[in-house]
Simulated assay, not measured.
Amino acid sequence: MRTITVGTRQSALALTQTNQVIERLKEIAENAGIACRFELKKIITRGDRILDVTLSKVGGKGLFVKEIEQALLDGAIDMAVHSMKDMPWERQEGLSIGATPLREDPRDCLVTRGNVSLSELPRGARVGTSSLRRSAQLLAYRPDLNVESIRGNIDSRLRKLEEEGFDAIVLAAAGLHRMGWKDRISEYLSPDICIPTVAQGALGIECRADDAFMLDLLGRFEDADTALAVRAERQFLGRLNGGCQIPIGAYAVVKDDAAGGKQLEMTAVVGTPDGSRLIKEWGRGSDPIQLGDLLADKMIEQGADRIIAELGG
């Protein structure tokens, strides 16, 4: 029986989603007659250590994955469960995403005092978010809001809503769903208002590229539609070389076409942090790489590359 050591960040959300993955993999292994057992290894990443600075100012890519990937390369762990939105575009040599499971709800959501909606927030309301993408789109929709930076894990940000006088905070719905806290959500933000970040709601399960045992097991956990949508979104991000310093998002939906194939529909956004300029595009196609490049190129024609360059992307 093989013992599989699973690396994870130590936040409540990271541990919860990792344990959910492990339970599903146990079922898959049992049904396939694969003998294995799992153990957890908690790893602190640079992004977890730096909590008093906004993500856009910390800079760099892979803030929440580099230490975990190094543990994989060193053989200290056999697989890792990442939030796919944290994964940098450039892949680490020697590692592979063995599975992209079924995606959770990709939308952003609002948690507010008094359980009010975005339109019901008073003028000048204090809204907390760690994301320039969310901030830009909220300010474009409601420029009267006072959007402020708020860092920390999902549970600490919920505490700050109550303790630090915020009227609302914006979080990924997927995290609240996985924690069993749907009842805290005041409103789901439509992508028409706030396009999600690339791969939000999706998990990426990573292993060593030469570990045939893990690749076989994880391959049984792949969700084809999720993988297709995430590939298109990440291609868009990579083509523009965007990062957390840039208000940038993309959201792809997979639909069955009349010929029995798959069609992707994707919306994307690039903007300035104050929301004064948002470039949005929409496209459709069957090839995720071509679709990602198409939307990126459309945005470059409208000046997205200049916005990214000015912001240091």
Rank of each mutant, 00 (worst) to 15 (best):
E90K: 15
Q92T: 15
I97M: 10
I97H: 04
P88I: 12
R113Y: 00
G128N: 08
P106Y: 10
E90G: 01
Q92V: 15
R107C: 11
G124P: 01
K85D: 15
P106L: 01
T100H: 11
R91T: 13
L118T: 11
E104G: 07
D108C: 08
M84E: 15
G114R: 05
P101M: 09
A99N: 06
K85A: 13
V116P: 09
L118D: 04
A125Q: 03
P101N: 04
M84T: 00
T100A: 10
L95P: 00
G128S: 09
S83N: 15
E104Q: 13
A99V: 09
Q92R: 15
P122D: 07
E90M: 12
L102I: 05
Q92H: 02
I97C: 11
L110W: 06
E93W: 02
G128A: 08
E104V: 00
D108T: 00
R103D: 02
E120K: 13
R126C: 01
S117N: 08
V111E: 02
P106A: 03
C109E: 04
L110E: 01
P88V: 11
G114F: 09
P122G: 04
D108S: 10
M87V: 15
L110V: 10
P106H: 10
A99R: 05
R113D: 01
G114M: 07
D108Y: 15
T112F: 05
G124D: 05
R113F: 00
D86L: 01
N115M: 10
R91E: 15
I97Q: 06
V111R: 01
G124L: 08
M87T: 10
L118A: 07
L121I: 08
R103P: 01
Q92N: 01
M84V: 00
R91Q: 15
G124F: 06
E90V: 15
P106C: 03
E104W: 14
N115G: 06
M84G: 03
R103L: 02
D105K: 09
Q92S: 10
T100F: 13
P101H: 08
T112D: 02
A99Y: 02
C109V: 11
C109A: 10
G114Y: 08
R123L: 13
L95Q: 06
L95W: 09
D105A: 07
G94I: 11
E93D: 14
V111W: 04
S117I: 06
G124T: 08
I97S: 03
V127Y: 01
W89N: 11
G98A: 14
G98W: 04
N115W: 08
V116M: 12
V116Y: 02
K85T: 12
E93K: 12
T112M: 02
E120V: 02
L118P: 12
L118N: 06
K85L: 02
L121R: 04
E104A: 13
Q92Y: 01
A99D: 07
V127T: 05
A99L: 07
S117T: 15
S119P: 00
W89P: 00
W89K: 01
R123Q: 14
G98V: 11
I97G: 00
N115A: 13
L118G: 06
D86P: 11
D108N: 14
D86A: 10
G128R: 06
G124Q: 08
R126L: 07
G98H: 09
H82P: 05
G128C: 09
L102Y: 11
P122W: 06
P88L: 03
L95S: 03
D105Q: 08
L121W: 04
T112G: 04
T112R: 00
V111T: 04
S117M: 03
P106K: 06
